[in-house]
Computed example of a mutant assay.
Amino acid sequence: MFIGGFATFALLYATQPLLPELSREFGVGAAWASLAVSAGTGAMAFMLIPASILSDRYGRVRLMKWSLALAAVIALAGAFVTDFTQMIVLRALLGAALAGLPAAAMAYLGEEISPNAQGRAMGLYIGGNALGGMSGRVLGGLLADVGSWRVALAVLGVLGILAAIAFWRALPASSHFRARSVSPRAVCDDARVIFADSHLRWLFACGFLLMGAFFGLYNYAGFRLEAPPYNLAQSAIGAIFLLYLMGSLSSAWAGRLSDRYGRHNVLWAMMVVALVGLATTQFEHLLVVILGIALYTFGYFGAHSTCSGWVGRRAGERRALASALYLSAYYLGSSLVGTFTGLAWDGGGWTGLSLAVGGCLLAALGLALWMRAMTRKS
C-alpha cells in the first residue's frame, strides 16, 4: 500500500513544479496553468464515489491494481501533448483513473488491519502518499532543468509503469472483504446514515479546507521563488518539495498520537502548527520562508492523517463510501480552492495568497475545536 500511495501521488502531482514552465510554454496565466494539476485532482474528486461503489461490489484489490496500471499509461502520454487543452484532458483522465486506488485504500486498511493499529497503518499509508508527491515534484523539477517538461513527464510515466508492475505483484489479497449491495437504494441508505453523523460531515468539510489551503500555498510557491529576489531555477524549486519528508514524519507521528491521546486532541494541534508555518512564510529571507513551508507541511499532513483515520474508524462498515466522500471533498478542495487562490496570488501576491489560505485554515481549526468539544461532552 505504501508503494501504491507513493506511485499515485507521484503521478498526480508531477506537473506542480512545472507550472511556471507550462505557463511560459503555452502562454497562459498562473491560475489557468494550475489546471495542469487541478484538472487531475478535480476528476479524482468526482470519480472517488463511483470507484468506492465498485470496490464494495467487486473488491478492493482488483480495483486498485487496474487503476494504477491505467493511470501510468495515461501519465506517459502526457509527455506528447501539442497544446494546453490536450494537457488538461489527459490530466483529468489521469485523475479519474487514479481514483480507484485511494477510494479503496482506506477501506482495505480498515478491513485488514486490527483496530488498535489502524492509526499507525493509516499514518504510514499517508506517509507513502506524501513521499510519492514529494518525489514526483522533486524529480519533475530536476528533469525539467536537465531536459524539459516533456522529458520529466516521460520519465515519470515510465517509473509509474514500473511501480504498477511491482504493486500488481506484491499486494496481498483481501482476507476480510465482504461484497456489499451496490443498488441505488442501498447506496442512498448508506449515504443518509453517514451524513446523519455530524462528526463525519465536519470531517468532510475539514478535508475540503485543508487540501484547498495546502494546494493554494504549494501551487504558487514556485511563482514566488522563481521571481526576484530569489530567482531560483526549476530544479531548486522542485527541491522545495523535499519538505514533504516532513509530511511523512508527521503522518506516522500523528497516527501514533491519535491512537494514544485521541484524534480530537491531535487534529486541532496540527492545524495550529500549519498556521504558525504560514505566518513564518511572510518573512523575506529564503531560509525563513523554507522553514515556514516545512512547518506548514508538517501540520497539514498530521491533520490530514488524523482526519482520514477518524473517518474510517467512525464510519464502521460504511467506511468505503465514507472514505470516498471524505476524499471527494478533499480533492475538490484542492481543485477549487487551489485554483481560485491563484486569483488571490494574481491580485495581491504572497500576502493576498496567505490571507486566502489562512482563512481556510482558520475555518478548519474552528471545526476541529467544535468536534473536540462535542467528543469530550459525549
Rank of each mutant, 00 (worst) to 15 (best):
V37N: 09
A373G: 11
Q282S: 15
T281S: 14
W32F: 15
V37M: 09
W66D: 11
F167S: 11
G366W: 02
G292M: 07
F223H: 06
L109F: 00
L343N: 03
A105L: 09
R57W: 05
S250F: 07
G127M: 08
I113T: 11
G136V: 04
A71M: 10
Y230M: 12
R192L: 15
I74H: 06
S181P: 06
E112C: 08
S323W: 00
I194K: 04
Y13N: 08
M47P: 04
A163H: 04
A10M: 11
A97L: 09
A164Y: 01
R137W: 02
V273K: 14
G212Q: 07
V311A: 05
I161F: 10
A79Q: 10
T297L: 14
L242Y: 00
L295K: 01
V193H: 10
S67R: 05
F223C: 14
A72M: 10
L232H: 02
A364Q: 06
N116Y: 14
L22A: 13
L159C: 13
T341C: 12
F283Y: 12
A221Q: 08
A364P: 06
R192K: 15
L242I: 02
T8Q: 06
A373W: 01
L18H: 04
V61Y: 02
C360V: 03
G127L: 08
A103C: 06
E25V: 10
W310A: 07
S354V: 02
F204N: 06
T351L: 15
W345G: 10
E226D: 12
L203C: 03
S258Y: 03
R313I: 08
A344F: 08
G312D: 04
F84H: 04
F340G: 07
V272Q: 13
L295N: 08
G359H: 05
A51Y: 00
V272F: 12
L325R: 02
K65I: 13
R224A: 15
S251T: 05
A274N: 14
Y218C: 12
S354Y: 01
F340Y: 09
R201A: 11
V155I: 13
A164I: 05
E111Q: 02
W66G: 14
A373S: 12
F9D: 04
F340V: 04
F223W: 05
G216W: 02
S23D: 14
L131Y: 00
I194S: 05
L109G: 01
S305N: 13
G212M: 10
G302R: 03
F2H: 00
S258G: 15
G262V: 09
L353M: 11
E284N: 11
V151N: 05
A7H: 00
S378W: 03
L332H: 03
A356L: 07
V155E: 14
W350F: 11
S183K: 03
E25P: 09
T8H: 08
G347D: 14
D259P: 02
A315S: 10
M64P: 03
P20L: 15
A105G: 02
T280P: 12
